[in-house]
Amino acid sequence: MAKENNQAISQKPAGAMKHILSFVFMIAFTAAAFFVVISDKVPSGWVVPLLLIFAVIQVILQLFTFMHLDQKGSAFYTIFIVFGIFVAVISAVGILLM
């Protein structure tokens, strides 16, 4: 724990870099999602799965970099947010498939 603390402190710019990099990825995926919808080159069966995949990747980036789930000691945060997502998906799909 202490070791990691020191590392993080000594490499402050890297911390910011990580977030900026992650941000660039997010923008890229957002753009890709818009592109998939606007362009007619993507086969129609692929559009919805691709959109969902892009969204999920972005959420993972947000959770693990911006919201710091990658840091140590966030086991409980992860457990509860993952269970929340699990319940959320079941509920939304359940309502949708009625």
């Binding site: 947010i81 269970f83 929340g84 319940v87 959320a88 998906v89 509920s91 939304a92 799909v93």
Partner: peptide
């Protein structure tokens, strides 16, 4: 936030 996730999921559904 876990609770909020479910809340929004219900609205999405």
């Amino acid at each position: 936030l876990g609770a909020e996730t479910v809340l929004f999921a219900c609205l999405f559904g």
